[in-house]
Design a protein around this nucleic acid. Structure first.
Lengths: 214, 214
DNA sequence: GTCTATATCCAGATAGAC
DNA sequence: GTCTATCTGGATATAGAC
Protein backbone atom coordinates (compact mmCIF):
# COMPACT_ATOMS: atom_id res chain seq x y z
CA UNK A 1 0.00 0.00 0.00
CA UNK A 2 2.33 2.71 -1.15
CA UNK A 3 -0.36 5.30 -0.70
CA UNK A 4 -0.05 5.19 3.03
CA UNK A 5 3.61 5.94 2.83
CA UNK A 6 3.05 9.19 1.02
CA UNK A 7 2.51 12.40 2.86
CA UNK A 8 -1.04 13.62 2.86
CA UNK A 9 -1.69 14.70 -0.74
CA UNK A 10 -1.46 18.44 -1.01
CA UNK A 11 -3.74 19.75 -3.72
CA UNK A 12 -2.17 23.22 -3.79
CA UNK A 13 0.46 23.64 -6.49
CA UNK A 14 3.98 24.10 -5.26
CA UNK A 15 4.49 27.69 -6.40
CA UNK A 16 1.31 28.75 -4.66
CA UNK A 17 2.50 27.17 -1.45
CA UNK A 18 5.77 29.04 -1.75
CA UNK A 19 4.07 32.37 -2.40
CA UNK A 20 1.65 31.91 0.46
CA UNK A 21 4.40 30.98 2.87
CA UNK A 22 6.48 33.92 1.71
CA UNK A 23 3.60 36.34 2.13
CA UNK A 24 2.86 35.23 5.66
CA UNK A 25 6.48 35.30 6.75
CA UNK A 26 7.28 38.62 5.08
CA UNK A 27 4.32 40.24 6.80
CA UNK A 28 5.07 38.69 10.18
CA UNK A 29 8.81 39.20 10.33
CA UNK A 30 9.76 41.58 7.54
CA UNK A 31 11.49 40.62 4.32
CA UNK A 32 15.04 40.88 5.63
CA UNK A 33 14.33 38.82 8.70
CA UNK A 34 13.09 35.88 6.65
CA UNK A 35 15.52 33.43 5.11
CA UNK A 36 14.94 31.18 2.14
CA UNK A 37 15.17 28.30 4.56
CA UNK A 38 12.30 29.70 6.61
CA UNK A 39 10.13 29.86 3.52
CA UNK A 40 11.23 26.42 2.45
CA UNK A 41 10.25 24.92 5.79
CA UNK A 42 6.91 26.69 6.00
CA UNK A 43 5.97 25.77 2.45
CA UNK A 44 7.12 22.18 2.88
CA UNK A 45 9.26 22.23 -0.22
CA UNK A 46 12.96 21.98 -0.81
CA UNK A 47 15.37 24.85 -1.37
CA UNK A 48 15.99 23.57 -4.87
CA UNK A 49 12.35 24.06 -5.84
CA UNK A 50 12.38 27.61 -4.65
CA UNK A 51 15.38 28.50 -6.75
CA UNK A 52 13.94 26.63 -9.76
CA UNK A 53 10.62 28.44 -9.52
CA UNK A 54 11.58 31.90 -8.38
CA UNK A 55 15.33 32.19 -8.59
CA UNK A 56 15.57 33.19 -4.93
CA UNK A 57 13.98 35.24 -2.22
CA UNK A 58 13.76 38.43 -4.22
CA UNK A 59 12.00 36.54 -6.99
CA UNK A 60 9.28 35.52 -4.56
CA UNK A 61 8.88 39.05 -3.29
CA UNK A 62 8.68 40.44 -6.81
CA UNK A 63 6.03 37.95 -7.91
CA UNK A 64 4.04 38.68 -4.76
CA UNK A 65 4.36 42.41 -5.25
CA UNK A 66 3.10 42.39 -8.84
CA UNK A 67 0.41 39.88 -8.06
CA UNK A 68 -0.97 41.80 -5.11
CA UNK A 69 -0.79 45.19 -6.80
CA UNK A 70 -2.91 43.55 -9.46
CA UNK A 71 -5.41 42.40 -6.88
CA UNK A 72 -5.75 45.96 -5.63
CA UNK A 73 -6.20 47.13 -9.21
CA UNK A 74 -8.96 44.56 -9.58
CA UNK A 75 -10.55 45.80 -6.39
CA UNK A 76 -10.66 49.29 -7.88
CA UNK A 77 -12.16 47.95 -11.10
CA UNK A 78 -14.83 46.07 -9.22
CA UNK A 79 -15.66 49.08 -7.09
CA UNK A 80 -15.76 51.43 -10.06
CA UNK A 81 -18.22 49.61 -12.28
CA UNK A 82 -21.84 50.67 -12.20
CA UNK A 83 -20.96 53.82 -10.29
CA UNK A 84 -21.76 57.10 -11.91
CA UNK A 85 -20.50 59.80 -9.56
CA UNK A 86 -16.97 60.07 -8.31
CA UNK A 87 -18.24 60.22 -4.78
CA UNK A 88 -20.03 56.88 -5.12
CA UNK A 89 -16.98 55.42 -6.78
CA UNK A 90 -14.51 56.47 -4.12
CA UNK A 91 -16.83 55.41 -1.34
CA UNK A 92 -17.14 51.95 -2.83
CA UNK A 93 -13.37 51.70 -3.21
CA UNK A 94 -12.90 52.56 0.44
CA UNK A 95 -15.64 50.18 1.46
CA UNK A 96 -13.92 47.32 -0.35
CA UNK A 97 -10.52 48.34 0.99
CA UNK A 98 -11.84 48.31 4.55
CA UNK A 99 -13.51 44.93 4.12
CA UNK A 100 -10.40 43.50 2.51
CA UNK A 101 -8.28 44.72 5.42
CA UNK A 102 -10.34 42.56 7.73
CA UNK A 103 -10.59 39.47 5.55
CA UNK A 104 -7.27 39.50 3.71
CA UNK A 105 -5.07 41.14 6.27
CA UNK A 106 -1.82 39.74 4.91
CA UNK A 107 -2.38 41.09 1.43
CA UNK A 108 -3.16 44.56 2.71
CA UNK A 109 -0.28 44.44 5.17
CA UNK A 110 2.17 43.46 2.46
CA UNK A 111 1.06 46.35 0.30
CA UNK A 112 0.70 49.04 2.96
CA UNK A 113 3.27 48.31 5.65
CA UNK A 114 6.78 47.91 4.24
CA UNK A 115 8.94 50.23 2.28
CA UNK A 116 9.20 48.04 -0.81
CA UNK A 117 12.27 49.77 -2.11
CA UNK A 118 14.15 48.23 0.79
CA UNK A 119 13.96 44.85 -0.90
CA UNK A 120 12.91 45.64 -4.48
CA UNK A 121 15.41 48.40 -5.25
CA UNK A 122 14.49 48.57 -8.93
CA UNK A 123 10.83 49.29 -8.31
CA UNK A 124 9.54 52.85 -8.27
CA UNK A 125 7.89 53.96 -5.02
CA UNK A 126 4.57 52.24 -4.54
CA UNK A 127 2.69 55.54 -4.62
CA UNK A 128 3.51 55.75 -8.31
CA UNK A 129 2.29 52.21 -8.98
CA UNK A 130 -0.89 51.69 -10.92
CA UNK A 131 -3.53 51.45 -8.21
CA UNK A 132 -2.30 54.53 -6.41
CA UNK A 133 -1.99 56.49 -9.63
CA UNK A 134 -5.52 55.51 -10.50
CA UNK A 135 -6.84 56.83 -7.21
CA UNK A 136 -5.38 60.22 -8.04
CA UNK A 137 -6.82 60.03 -11.54
CA UNK A 138 -10.26 59.34 -10.14
CA UNK A 139 -9.98 62.43 -7.98
CA UNK A 140 -8.72 64.46 -10.91
CA UNK A 141 -11.75 63.35 -12.91
CA UNK A 142 -13.99 64.41 -10.06
CA UNK A 143 -12.51 67.87 -10.20
CA UNK A 144 -12.86 68.11 -13.96
CA UNK A 145 -16.49 67.09 -13.68
CA UNK A 146 -17.05 69.71 -11.00
CA UNK A 147 -17.90 67.27 -8.23
CA UNK A 148 -14.87 68.25 -6.23
CA UNK A 149 -13.57 71.71 -5.44
CA UNK A 150 -10.59 72.94 -7.40
CA UNK A 151 -7.34 72.23 -5.58
CA UNK A 152 -4.20 70.21 -6.16
CA UNK A 153 -4.93 66.64 -7.06
CA UNK A 154 -2.55 65.41 -4.38
CA UNK A 155 -4.27 67.30 -1.59
CA UNK A 156 -7.69 66.17 -2.70
CA UNK A 157 -6.53 62.58 -3.09
CA UNK A 158 -4.86 62.66 0.32
CA UNK A 159 -8.08 63.94 1.82
CA UNK A 160 -10.28 61.24 0.36
CA UNK A 161 -8.05 58.21 0.09
CA UNK A 162 -5.24 59.31 2.41
CA UNK A 163 -7.59 59.34 5.37
CA UNK A 164 -8.77 55.85 4.49
CA UNK A 165 -5.21 54.62 3.99
CA UNK A 166 -4.21 56.12 7.32
CA UNK A 167 -7.07 54.27 8.97
CA UNK A 168 -5.84 51.06 7.37
CA UNK A 169 -2.36 51.64 8.76
CA UNK A 170 -3.69 52.41 12.22
CA UNK A 171 -5.79 49.28 12.07
CA UNK A 172 -2.85 47.11 11.02
CA UNK A 173 -0.82 48.56 13.88
CA UNK A 174 -3.53 47.79 16.38
CA UNK A 175 -4.36 51.41 17.21
CA UNK A 176 -7.84 51.21 15.77
CA UNK A 177 -9.73 48.61 17.74
CA UNK A 178 -12.91 47.99 15.82
CA UNK A 179 -13.19 46.45 12.38
CA UNK A 180 -12.69 49.17 9.80
CA UNK A 181 -16.13 48.95 8.18
CA UNK A 182 -17.49 50.27 11.49
CA UNK A 183 -15.98 53.63 10.63
CA UNK A 184 -17.15 53.91 7.03
CA UNK A 185 -19.77 56.60 7.51
CA UNK A 186 -17.54 58.73 9.70
CA UNK A 187 -14.69 58.47 7.23
CA UNK A 188 -16.84 59.48 4.28
CA UNK A 189 -18.39 62.31 6.17
CA UNK A 190 -15.11 63.64 7.50
CA UNK A 191 -13.38 63.51 4.12
CA UNK A 192 -16.13 65.15 2.14
CA UNK A 193 -17.47 67.60 4.67
CA UNK A 194 -14.53 68.21 6.97
CA UNK A 195 -14.52 67.90 10.69
CA UNK A 196 -15.47 71.40 11.76
CA UNK A 197 -18.64 71.81 13.71
CA UNK A 198 -21.34 72.86 11.30
CA UNK A 199 -23.68 75.64 12.40
CA UNK A 200 -26.78 73.47 11.94
CA UNK A 201 -25.30 70.90 14.28
CA UNK A 202 -24.63 73.20 17.17
CA UNK A 203 -28.14 72.72 18.55
CA UNK A 204 -27.84 68.95 18.59
CA UNK A 205 -24.39 69.29 20.09
CA UNK A 206 -25.75 71.36 22.95
CA UNK A 207 -28.60 68.94 23.44
CA UNK A 208 -26.09 66.12 23.68
CA UNK A 209 -24.17 68.09 26.24
CA UNK A 210 -27.27 68.42 28.40
CA UNK A 211 -27.97 64.72 28.19
CA UNK A 212 -24.42 63.99 29.21
CA UNK A 213 -24.78 66.13 32.29
CA UNK A 214 -27.66 64.10 33.63
CA UNK B 1 55.66 70.29 12.62
CA UNK B 2 53.49 67.43 13.75
CA UNK B 3 50.38 69.47 13.12
CA UNK B 4 50.73 69.09 9.40
CA UNK B 5 50.84 65.37 9.72
CA UNK B 6 47.47 65.20 11.38
CA UNK B 7 44.28 64.86 9.47
CA UNK B 8 42.21 67.99 9.30
CA UNK B 9 40.82 68.41 12.81
CA UNK B 10 37.23 67.31 12.94
CA UNK B 11 35.32 69.31 15.50
CA UNK B 12 32.28 67.04 15.51
CA UNK B 13 32.35 64.45 18.30
CA UNK B 14 32.71 60.89 17.19
CA UNK B 15 29.30 59.63 18.25
CA UNK B 16 27.60 62.45 16.35
CA UNK B 17 29.52 61.54 13.23
CA UNK B 18 28.41 57.93 13.61
CA UNK B 19 24.77 58.87 14.11
CA UNK B 20 24.78 61.26 11.18
CA UNK B 21 26.38 58.72 8.89
CA UNK B 22 23.93 56.08 10.05
CA UNK B 23 20.95 58.33 9.47
CA UNK B 24 22.00 59.20 5.94
CA UNK B 25 22.76 55.62 4.97
CA UNK B 26 19.65 54.16 6.58
CA UNK B 27 17.47 56.64 4.73
CA UNK B 28 19.26 56.15 1.42
CA UNK B 29 19.58 52.39 1.37
CA UNK B 30 17.38 51.04 4.13
CA UNK B 31 18.59 49.65 7.44
CA UNK B 32 19.17 46.11 6.26
CA UNK B 33 21.13 47.15 3.21
CA UNK B 34 23.65 49.07 5.30
CA UNK B 35 26.52 47.30 7.01
CA UNK B 36 28.47 48.43 10.02
CA UNK B 37 31.42 48.77 7.69
CA UNK B 38 29.51 51.20 5.50
CA UNK B 39 28.76 53.38 8.49
CA UNK B 40 32.32 53.09 9.71
CA UNK B 41 33.70 54.27 6.38
CA UNK B 42 31.23 57.11 5.99
CA UNK B 43 31.80 58.36 9.53
CA UNK B 44 35.56 58.01 9.26
CA UNK B 45 35.86 56.00 12.42
CA UNK B 46 36.88 52.45 13.17
CA UNK B 47 34.62 49.50 13.73
CA UNK B 48 35.85 49.29 17.30
CA UNK B 49 34.55 52.75 18.10
CA UNK B 50 31.14 51.91 16.81
CA UNK B 51 30.87 48.85 19.01
CA UNK B 52 32.25 50.78 22.00
CA UNK B 53 29.78 53.61 21.58
CA UNK B 54 26.65 51.88 20.38
CA UNK B 55 27.18 48.16 20.73
CA UNK B 56 26.42 47.58 17.09
CA UNK B 57 24.16 48.58 14.22
CA UNK B 58 20.93 48.14 16.11
CA UNK B 59 22.28 50.36 18.86
CA UNK B 60 22.77 53.16 16.37
CA UNK B 61 19.29 52.72 14.99
CA UNK B 62 17.77 52.71 18.45
CA UNK B 63 19.57 55.88 19.53
CA UNK B 64 18.54 57.57 16.31
CA UNK B 65 14.98 56.45 16.72
CA UNK B 66 14.59 57.77 20.26
CA UNK B 67 16.46 60.93 19.46
CA UNK B 68 14.39 61.76 16.42
CA UNK B 69 11.08 60.88 18.03
CA UNK B 70 12.14 63.37 20.66
CA UNK B 71 12.78 66.00 18.05
CA UNK B 72 9.29 65.52 16.70
CA UNK B 73 7.94 65.79 20.21
CA UNK B 74 9.83 69.05 20.58
CA UNK B 75 8.36 70.24 17.32
CA UNK B 76 4.91 69.62 18.70
CA UNK B 77 5.77 71.47 21.91
CA UNK B 78 7.09 74.43 20.01
CA UNK B 79 4.03 74.54 17.78
CA UNK B 80 1.63 74.19 20.69
CA UNK B 81 2.80 77.02 22.86
CA UNK B 82 0.97 80.33 22.64
CA UNK B 83 -1.84 78.73 20.69
CA UNK B 84 -5.27 78.80 22.22
CA UNK B 85 -7.55 76.92 19.84
CA UNK B 86 -6.99 73.38 18.69
CA UNK B 87 -7.32 74.51 15.13
CA UNK B 88 -4.46 76.99 15.48
CA UNK B 89 -2.41 74.40 17.28
CA UNK B 90 -2.82 71.70 14.67
CA UNK B 91 -2.22 74.12 11.85
CA UNK B 92 1.04 75.21 13.41
CA UNK B 93 2.10 71.61 13.90
CA UNK B 94 1.48 70.86 10.25
CA UNK B 95 3.23 74.06 9.20
CA UNK B 96 6.35 73.04 11.13
CA UNK B 97 6.14 69.48 9.87
CA UNK B 98 6.00 70.68 6.28
CA UNK B 99 8.91 73.07 6.73
CA UNK B 100 10.93 70.39 8.47
CA UNK B 101 10.30 67.98 5.60
CA UNK B 102 12.03 70.40 3.26
CA UNK B 103 14.91 71.40 5.51
CA UNK B 104 15.53 68.19 7.45
CA UNK B 105 14.51 65.62 4.92
CA UNK B 106 16.54 62.78 6.44
CA UNK B 107 14.98 63.13 9.85
CA UNK B 108 11.47 63.08 8.46
CA UNK B 109 12.31 60.25 6.08
CA UNK B 110 13.72 58.14 8.91
CA UNK B 111 10.58 58.63 10.96
CA UNK B 112 7.96 58.33 8.22
CA UNK B 113 9.33 55.91 5.62
CA UNK B 114 10.45 52.63 7.14
CA UNK B 115 8.60 50.04 9.11
CA UNK B 116 10.69 50.36 12.26
CA UNK B 117 9.64 47.01 13.63
CA UNK B 118 11.67 45.45 10.84
CA UNK B 119 14.85 46.45 12.63
CA UNK B 120 13.72 47.37 16.14
CA UNK B 121 11.58 44.36 16.91
CA UNK B 122 11.07 45.29 20.55
CA UNK B 123 9.59 48.69 19.81
CA UNK B 124 5.84 49.16 19.63
CA UNK B 125 4.50 50.43 16.30
CA UNK B 126 5.48 54.03 15.75
CA UNK B 127 1.84 55.14 15.69
CA UNK B 128 1.70 54.39 19.37
CA UNK B 129 4.86 56.37 20.12
CA UNK B 130 4.60 59.64 21.98
CA UNK B 131 4.35 62.20 19.19
CA UNK B 132 1.68 60.27 17.35
CA UNK B 133 -0.27 59.61 20.52
CA UNK B 134 -0.12 63.28 21.33
CA UNK B 135 -1.59 64.20 17.99
CA UNK B 136 -4.59 62.05 18.77
CA UNK B 137 -4.83 63.59 22.23
CA UNK B 138 -4.88 67.06 20.76
CA UNK B 139 -7.75 66.03 18.53
CA UNK B 140 -9.53 64.44 21.45
CA UNK B 141 -9.18 67.67 23.38
CA UNK B 142 -10.62 69.57 20.43
CA UNK B 143 -13.65 67.37 20.54
CA UNK B 144 -14.08 67.75 24.27
CA UNK B 145 -13.88 71.50 23.89
CA UNK B 146 -16.49 71.41 21.15
CA UNK B 147 -14.21 72.69 18.44
CA UNK B 148 -14.44 69.47 16.50
CA UNK B 149 -17.51 67.43 15.69
CA UNK B 150 -18.11 64.30 17.70
CA UNK B 151 -16.64 61.26 15.98
CA UNK B 152 -14.01 58.63 16.69
CA UNK B 153 -10.71 60.16 17.66
CA UNK B 154 -8.91 58.06 15.07
CA UNK B 155 -11.04 59.24 12.19
CA UNK B 156 -10.73 62.87 13.23
CA UNK B 157 -6.97 62.54 13.72
CA UNK B 158 -6.60 60.80 10.38
CA UNK B 159 -8.50 63.61 8.75
CA UNK B 160 -6.41 66.39 10.21
CA UNK B 161 -2.96 64.91 10.60
CA UNK B 162 -3.35 61.87 8.35
CA UNK B 163 -3.81 64.08 5.33
CA UNK B 164 -0.68 66.01 6.24
CA UNK B 165 1.28 62.82 6.87
CA UNK B 166 0.13 61.44 3.54
CA UNK B 167 1.37 64.60 1.86
CA UNK B 168 4.73 64.15 3.57
CA UNK B 169 4.95 60.59 2.27
CA UNK B 170 4.01 61.64 -1.25
CA UNK B 171 6.60 64.38 -1.09
CA UNK B 172 9.33 62.01 0.11
CA UNK B 173 8.44 59.65 -2.72
CA UNK B 174 8.69 62.41 -5.29
CA UNK B 175 5.00 62.38 -6.22
CA UNK B 176 4.38 65.87 -4.90
CA UNK B 177 6.57 68.23 -6.87
CA UNK B 178 6.41 71.52 -5.02
CA UNK B 179 7.73 72.22 -1.54
CA UNK B 180 5.12 71.19 0.99
CA UNK B 181 4.52 74.64 2.48
CA UNK B 182 3.02 75.58 -0.88
CA UNK B 183 0.06 73.37 -0.05
CA UNK B 184 -0.57 74.55 3.50
CA UNK B 185 -3.76 76.50 2.88
CA UNK B 186 -5.26 73.81 0.72
CA UNK B 187 -4.46 71.13 3.28
CA UNK B 188 -6.00 73.10 6.14
CA UNK B 189 -9.05 73.93 4.15
CA UNK B 190 -9.58 70.40 2.88
CA UNK B 191 -9.16 68.83 6.31
CA UNK B 192 -11.41 71.19 8.19
CA UNK B 193 -14.04 71.90 5.56
CA UNK B 194 -13.91 68.83 3.36
CA UNK B 195 -13.52 68.81 -0.36
CA UNK B 196 -17.10 68.93 -1.52
CA UNK B 197 -18.13 71.90 -3.58
CA UNK B 198 -19.84 74.36 -1.25
CA UNK B 199 -23.02 76.00 -2.46
CA UNK B 200 -21.60 79.51 -2.01
CA UNK B 201 -18.68 78.60 -4.23
CA UNK B 202 -20.66 77.40 -7.19
CA UNK B 203 -20.91 80.89 -8.60
CA UNK B 204 -17.16 81.42 -8.46
CA UNK B 205 -16.66 77.97 -9.90
CA UNK B 206 -18.84 78.81 -12.89
CA UNK B 207 -17.09 82.10 -13.34
CA UNK B 208 -13.78 80.28 -13.36
CA UNK B 209 -15.18 77.93 -15.97
CA UNK B 210 -16.06 80.86 -18.22
CA UNK B 211 -12.63 82.35 -17.82
CA UNK B 212 -11.08 79.02 -18.70
CA UNK B 213 -13.08 78.91 -21.89
CA UNK B 214 -11.68 82.18 -23.18
C1' DG C 1 11.01 18.72 -11.31
C1' DT C 2 12.39 17.79 -6.69
C1' DC C 3 15.56 16.93 -3.27
C1' DT C 4 20.11 16.92 -0.07
C1' DA C 5 24.53 18.25 0.73
C1' DT C 6 27.79 21.52 0.09
C1' DA C 7 30.29 25.78 -1.25
C1' DT C 8 30.91 30.64 -0.94
C1' DC C 9 30.50 34.83 0.85
C1' DC C 10 29.78 38.57 3.89
C1' DA C 11 27.82 40.85 7.82
C1' DG C 12 28.14 41.14 12.73
C1' DA C 13 30.95 40.82 16.49
C1' DT C 14 35.37 40.32 19.26
C1' DA C 15 40.27 40.35 20.85
C1' DG C 16 43.96 42.63 21.91
C1' DA C 17 47.71 46.15 20.48
C1' DC C 18 48.39 50.96 20.93
C1' DG D 1 39.11 55.49 23.69
C1' DT D 2 40.60 54.14 19.17
C1' DC D 3 42.29 51.11 15.92
C1' DT D 4 43.41 46.58 12.93
C1' DA D 5 43.12 41.93 12.31
C1' DT D 6 40.51 38.07 12.94
C1' DC D 7 36.73 34.83 14.05
C1' DT D 8 32.18 32.99 13.56
C1' DG D 9 27.59 32.25 12.09
C1' DG D 10 24.28 32.28 8.93
C1' DA D 11 22.40 33.47 4.54
C1' DT D 12 22.39 32.95 -0.48
C1' DA D 13 23.23 30.12 -4.01
C1' DT D 14 24.84 25.85 -6.56
C1' DA D 15 25.98 20.97 -7.84
C1' DG D 16 24.56 16.84 -8.70
C1' DA D 17 21.80 12.51 -7.21
C1' DC D 18 17.20 10.79 -7.80
Amino acid sequence: MPYLNRAAPDPEPIDCRILTAGLILFVEDGYHNVSVHDIQKKANVSIGSIYKHFGGKEGIAKKLYYHLLNEIDELINQASKDKSTIQEKSEEIIRLLFTYTETERNIIAFIFQPNHQDFLPDEPPICSASPFRRLREIIREGMDRGEIREMSTEVAASTIFGVAIRMVQLRLDGIVENPLPTYLDEVFDASWNGILIKSDEINNQEADGLVAQL
